[in-house]
């Protein structure tokens, strides 16, 4: 069985949560092989974890200062692993780093780049969506290696545990000009609230909240439901919250079981990022808002009275 390479994303030096599904996707196409870039000597220590998640082989590239280099070490490692493994496919995650590593690799190896993939079958045909979920598309590689970027939380299950045999890679001869990462500002506060992409419930606030101070109401609502927090672009632009909470065409695409839109009008570009949610609830004082055209349950009313009452009602249910 031919190998399928997986670029392992790291968080705090450990395989990221995405590793499970990336190796599971690889197992559908062949024998999963993990590719890890880390400080020299460190990658090997991850082999046991990766073996549990299904990696038969662990290609380990030790790169001094790996954490301070943008994307190029990962491309070099994938290319080096590919020249040993001769893979049919390469699987990468959905962070900007992984997507860009995959894109560059497709050029370096000569292959197809399939982005934002939601599902994959044993023949290597992938499912994508287009135009905010209005179309389902299937695609495949016509020639060369298929480099497939998987949208997070798309693939269920896990690959069977494997041996995790370590193969060292030497990428010191890579000549691509580098970009230095000089500082990181990445909130680890994620632990307090579920991540937008993975959440079962998403509560999003829009310009209707009116100010950063009042935006706290949707944060409270999200926390009372154990939900992830999202926002419209207008709310982000107005500075009510961080940009990485933006849902929509140019933000994150979500499809939770429950999406609650608070003070959001439902512009087409916002709908593009959430209209495939299973159940949609909207609270808006303007009955002509387009968000009501797609809401399963819509409330025409003032969010500043409806939301507190709803939270009270939820609390009452929990305690009764």
């Amino acid at each position: 069985m031919s190998q399928v390479l997986v670029l392992v994303e790291l968080t705090d030096g450990k395989p990221a949560d995405s590793t499970r599904e990336l190796l599971a996707a690889a197992a559908m196409l062949g024998e999963p092989a993990a590719v890890v870039v880390a400080e020299p000597g460190v990658a090997k220590a991850l082999a046991a974890d990766l073996a549990k998640l299904g990696a038969a082989t662990v290609y380990a590239a030790g790169v001094a200062g790996a954490d301070a280099l943008l994307v190029t070490p990962q491309v070099a490692a994938l290319a080096a692993a590919a020249s040993t493994a001769g893979p049919t496919a390469v699987i990468v995650g959905s962070t900007p780093d992984s997507r860009e590593a995959g894109a560059r690799l497709a050029v370096r190896l000569g292959g197809a780049y399939l982005s934002d993939v939601l599902a994959i079958d044993a023949n290597g045909t992938v499912t994508q969506t287009a135009f905010g979920g209005s179309y389902n598309v299937t695609a495949s590689a016509a020639k060369g290696v298929a480099v497939i970027s998987i949208r997070s939380n798309s693939i269920d299950g896990a690959a069977a545990a494997a041996s995790g045999t370590v193969v060292d890679l030497d990428v010191s001869s890579d000549s691509a000009p580098t970009t230095a990462i000089t500082a990181r500002h990445e909130a680890v506060a994620a632990a307090e609230r579920p991540a937008l992409k993975a959440a079962n419930i998403v509560v999003s606030g829009g310009r209707g909240l009116g100010s950063k101070e009042k935006f706290v109401l949707v944060e409270e609502l999200a926390d009372s439901l154990g939900a992830a927090l999202g926002a419209s672009r207008a709310a982000v632009d107005a500075g009510y919250c961080e940009h990485n909470l933006q849902v929509g065409q140019t933000g994150t695409t979500v499809s939770p079981n429950l999406y609650i839109a608070v003070g959001i009008s439902g512009a087409i570009q916002h709908l593009a990022g959430m209209q495939s949610s299973k159940t949609i609830v909207a609270i808006n004082k303007d009955e002509n808002s387009p968000i009501f055209d797609i809401a399963d349950f819509g409330i025409v009313g003032d969010l500043f009275t409806v939301v507190p009452q709803f939270m009270e009602a939820v609390k009452a249910r929990k305690t009764s």
Binding site: A106, G110, G111, A112, Y113, L114, T125, A130, G133, S134, Y135, N136, V137, T138, A139, S140, A141, A142, K143, G144, A146, Q275, I280, V281, I283, E287, F292, D293, I294, A295, D296, F297, G298, I299, V300, G301, D302, T305, V306, V307, P308, Q309, F310, M311, E312, A313, V314, R317
Partner: peptide, 30 residues
């Protein structure tokens, strides 16, 4: 290098119930 094999339109989503807040909408939502 890559080819699109099939394209299918997803039916547009239909709206559901819309209520006007009569003072109990938060309760009804719960």
């Amino acid at each position: 290098w890559s080819v699109v094999d099939t394209v299918t339109v997803k039916p547009p989503r239909e709206g559901g119930t819309v209520i006007k807040d009569d003072g109990t909408a938060g309760q009804q939502l719960a």
